[in-house]
Amino acid sequence: MRDVAIVSFAQSNAASEVRSEVEILQPVAAEAVKNSGLARTEIDFTCSGSSDWLQGQPFAFVMALDAVGSWPPIKESHVEQDGAWALYEAWVKIQTGEVESALVYSFGKTSPGDIAQVQALQLDPYCVTPLWPDLDSLSAIQARACLEVGVVTERAMAEVVSRSLRDARDNPHAVRKGDHSVDDLLERPFQVSPLRELDCPANSDGATAMVIVAGDRAKQLCDRPVWIRGFDHRIDPPALGTRDLTRIPSAKLAAEKAGAHRDKLDFAEVTAPYSHQELLLRREMGLADDLSVNPSGGSLATHTLMSCGLNRIGDAAMRIAAGKGDRALAHAGQGPCLQQNLAVVLEGE
């Protein structure tokens, strides 16, 4: 595998944006390009992630090209997935040897539509979507299954929330943050029992951009390139009724294949939109109880749909670049109850 490094990262997150997607994305992409040290036209490949349903327009990603510039014509692709999978496609493209660098971006607004209803469109269209369950409810079913067998406790979930929102105070991009004691959290009413409001994701609007560069060129561009040492993603079956909801086999497999434990991890950034899912991911991906997870605050602090996975990777990379750790696991997940999971291992020089 070729050595590939994350050389720059930028993000914008807000609870609710009145700007258009192009207006949100343009400064973020410009910042990532500027901080990469490469000129826009020097970047060999571009790949993005988005979903048409968030703005209710087919080909939403076509207009987004206006925000990154595509003249002269660019080598470009797009996934209708979280930007973390766009990063994967870009990384694969560099592995072919055809390109040396890539701009990866993603964007999404959860505020314009009824996001609960929009997200119900990802379920079995014949037998499940017609009943209009929201992801909060499906995740609550998963949480209860976990509570029943004791792989999580309500207190442990509250501890995840308390720690995440406290850590988020240091994250300027977090839209939900604060100091909440575990006891206080456990007193709060249920949103969808057994989940309370703060166990659920902080849905937000925003955009994310990242530049990755291969080999020696990355070393020239930054003092401390953050290397992608392993990269993998896997998927589980969609029907919740056929899955053991207390397990996430695809997360375990992705972390193994990415080589998460070939060496000691200093911290992890995982996409856990619901508090119990962090606990499940810790178990599946073999993260020790005392390992720092989501120092950014994670999805409980900012859940920018289509960007949240790429944000976790970028947050982890920037933390390593700042010298706050040498080796991290970053994870992206999407689909109901984390059906699809991606793991990337990052290392500082």
Partner: peptide, 17 residues
């Protein structure tokens, strides 16, 4: 099987538009 869909959005035109 019929699966009717109706989604309502609060569309923002953006600043320039």
């Amino acid at each position: 099987v019929a699966t009717p869909l109706r989604l309502e959005y609060d569309f923002t035109a953006g600043r320039e538009q």
